[in-house]
Amino acid sequence: MILAFLLGFGLFADHIGRLVTPGQMQQADGIVVLTGGHSRIDVAVRLLKAGKGKRLLISGVNPIARADDLRIATGSEAELFDCCVDIDHAALDTIGNAEESAKWVQANAYDSIILVTNNYHMPRSLLEMRRLLPSATVHPYPVVNTPLDNAAWLAKPDALRVLATEYTKYVGALLREIVPIPRIAGLKQPNEITKATLK
Rank of each mutant, 00 (worst) to 15 (best):
T94M: 10
P22T: 03
K188E: 07
Q24K: 11
G51K: 02
P180K: 09
A78F: 04
K103C: 03
D111P: 01
E128R: 12
G8Q: 13
K49R: 15
G51M: 07
P123C: 01
S125M: 06
K195Q: 08
Y141E: 11
Q24H: 08
T117N: 13
R46N: 14
V85E: 02
T137A: 08
L92M: 07
L126W: 09
A98H: 06
S125L: 08
A151H: 09
K169V: 07
F5M: 08
R130I: 13
A109M: 09
A109V: 03
Y141M: 14
L163C: 06
D14H: 11
A90Q: 11
A44P: 03
V144K: 06
E177F: 10
A164H: 05
L160R: 11
L70P: 09
L3G: 01
L92G: 06
I58N: 03
E100M: 12
K188W: 03
G36R: 10
F12C: 14
C83D: 07
I184P: 00
L34F: 15
L163N: 07
H139I: 15
D69E: 09
D69L: 13
Y120C: 05
V61G: 01
A13C: 14
S135W: 14
N150T: 02
V32N: 02
T168I: 14
P180M: 01
M1P: 10
G75K: 13
D93E: 03
C84F: 04
L80E: 00
V179F: 08
D86Y: 04
L148C: 04
G75L: 12
